[in-house]
Amino acid sequence: MNWQNISFDWNQARAFLATAEAGSFSAAARALGLTQPTLSRQVAALESGLGVLLFQRVGRTLRLTEPGLDLLDHFRAMGDAALQISLAASGRSQAVSGRVSITATDVMSAFRLPEAIKRIAEEAPGIEIDLVVSNQIQDLRRREADIAIRHVRPQEGDLVARLLGETTAHLYAAASLLDRLGRPSTVDDLREFPFVGFAPVDRVRSVLNGMGLPIDRSQFKVVTDNGIAMCELVKHGLGVGVMTRETSRMLPGVECVLPDFQPFPVPVWLTTHRELHTSKRIRLVFDILAQVLR
């Protein structure tokens, strides 16, 4: 590699990442503890050095341009690498200790978080994790949790949020149910199927109807407020249910119903309060969750 050709300012990259995640220069500057003019100059210098426009202004917010979107994952990878270098060089993984609470849905907590928590235990054995399993949005500003994994973008202005990505949800049913009732080929065929509902079921039915699925309230033969229970009910052939593709892969004997039907978008947001930038243990846990769940 020709090292002489590499000229890069990490502060500019960090300014770009913070702005992409916060959506504005002012919010990014607060997150990094900088003034807004300083941060905007760093982003402008990065754009000049790369020869591309990274953001365009839309109202009061900034939106990534196509080149900005193309480069975002590369800069995130750099941020992850910088974290690992810091851990290796300073031994911070051994020095950081304390309790960090994470809140997530029951399905996320059961199927996705164990891998991330294992990684945290390996890299920072001094950290203790409180896992708050809840399908209700916890109030981070009231310290009901330190870090939240949500499927809706947080609206509170004093929170830090990172979009980890977007998965999709589909209709699923047990093969045993489909063997008995037949595999639907059109949305109208679904009128003959029982459904497993997730409370509040009227909201679920409204979403399904809005996407063109003619599901009646009477078809929800079983309703639960627990995501894991819903998955198990679907697996045991009690009805059709909505779940993400990642969850379905962990349920043997479950098939996608109407696989060509448009999927339901499910964003995954990682959220914390401003202490992210002052607490080493919260920052470390936040970054590891981002790496594992992205």
Rank of each mutant, 00 (worst) to 15 (best):
P114H: 08
S185G: 01
G98K: 05
L17N: 07
Q12W: 09
L190I: 11
V266G: 05
L140S: 01
S97C: 07
P259G: 08
N226P: 06
A31K: 11
S97R: 11
I147D: 00
S279V: 05
A124W: 06
T224C: 12
R274G: 12
R142Q: 09
R14C: 07
D106P: 01
V266M: 05
I120V: 10
G23V: 03
V257T: 04
A121Q: 09
F16E: 04
G239S: 10
E115M: 06
A173P: 00
V96G: 04
E246I: 03
G79N: 15
L270M: 09
L83C: 13
R294P: 07
D139Q: 15
T65M: 07
R283I: 00
L270F: 09
V242P: 14
N135R: 06
L171R: 13
A88N: 10
A82F: 13
R142A: 08
T168V: 14
L270I: 00
L164M: 13
A95D: 00
R180I: 07
L181K: 04
M108C: 12
I129S: 02
V207E: 14
A169L: 10
I127Q: 03
T19D: 00
S206N: 14
L238Y: 02
L46P: 03
L289D: 09
S185D: 01
Y172V: 04
I127P: 01
G126P: 09
A161D: 02
R141G: 12
L293H: 10
A20P: 04
M78I: 15
S101N: 00
T103L: 03
G197T: 07
R119E: 05
Q36C: 07
R183V: 15
R142Y: 01
S97L: 02
I137E: 05
D287Y: 01
E123D: 10
A44Q: 11
E47K: 11
F16Q: 13
L69N: 12
V160L: 15
Q262V: 14
R112N: 00
K118I: 01
W10Q: 13
G182T: 13
A124S: 06
R203Y: 06
S86C: 03
T61S: 15
E122G: 03
R30D: 01
K221F: 02
Q36R: 15
E192C: 03
T61A: 15
Q155D: 05
D189E: 01
V58F: 03
V107H: 12
T271H: 11
F220H: 06
K280S: 01
P194I: 12
Q155S: 09
P194L: 07
A173Y: 03
W3I: 09
G227A: 09
S176Y: 06
L251Q: 13
L46H: 03
V160W: 15
V201R: 12
A22N: 08
P214S: 14
Q56R: 07
T168W: 05
A31W: 15
G237T: 11
R249K: 12
T167A: 14
V160G: 00
D106C: 04
S90Q: 04
R203F: 05
V234K: 10
R141K: 12
R92T: 01
S176G: 02
S109W: 13
E275M: 14
D189W: 03
